[in-house]
């Protein structure tokens, strides 16, 4: 498989959210605006790239029995780094994303790629896999965030497009997350088939 194939597979064909339905908690939890979705997506991308890189290098030294715990420790170290970096440089976003930043540890996408790809492949393909999976995840979150922000409050990335009083508040609240994602996946299923 060439590097381009790996990239396209992670970004679109096996998109973590739309095709594999992984990482649903942050997908629904932080996408009340496009900016939040993008921020969460990029934070996860960073963790994915770094953990894929390190795991592809060390996995041959790790005995099979302690494979998963060691992967979790590697992932958790990078999550802690992201957590501290975001608290330092983008405190407002850090506040908004809240408990979901430490929860990147239990995001099935990250552990899933570590186990299914990085532990079996060399460094360069693993990095590409991390980049594509991460960007695919970030794209999905930004799309959902943009849809919810647009219908809910008439904004896009914080820029007002129409008066907020015409927005449907439910899209910003919890039920809107489920419903918007449901229709988005249905729409993508339809596009995929054509």
């Amino acid at each position: 498989m060439t590097n381009k194939d790996i990239f396209l597979r992670g970004f679109f064909k096996e998109n973590a959210v739309f095709a594999l339905l992984l990482g649903m908690c942050p997908t629904l939890g932080v996408t009340s605006s496009a900016t939040n979705g993008l921020g969460m997506g990029l934070a996860t991308t960073f963790v994915l790239i770094m953990s894929n890189l390190v795991i592809s290098l060390v996995s041959s030294f790790i005995p099979d029995k302690v494979k998963i715990p060691s992967f979790i420790v590697i992932i958790a170290s990078f999550v802690t780094m992201v957590d501290l970096l975001m608290a330092g440089y983008v405190p407002a976003l850090h506040e908004q994303l809240g408990v979901f930043i430490p929860l990147i540890v239990v995001n099935c996408v990250v552990l899933g790629r570590a186990e299914a790809f990085a532990s079996k492949n060399k460094m360069v393909p693993s990095i590409i896999d991390g980049v594509s999976m991460g960007l695919g995840f970030a794209m999905a979150l930004t799309m959902l965030g943009a849809i919810r922000e647009f219908f809910g409050s008439g904004k896009m990335f914080g820029v007002t497009l129409f008066n907020e009083t015409y927005g449907m508040l439910v899209f910003v609240l919890a039920p809107g997350a489920f419903i918007a994602l449901g229709y988005l996946i249905a729409f993508i299923n339809r596009v995929r088939k054509v």
Partner: peptide
């Protein structure tokens, strides 16, 4: 066909969340 499975489940979950509101 397109909405069967996960999309339908998500929409139903949304309605359940609305009830909990």
């Amino acid at each position: 066909k397109g909405i069967k499975g996960t999309p339908a489940a998500l929409i139903v979950a949304g309605l359940l969340a609305m009830a909990f509101m």
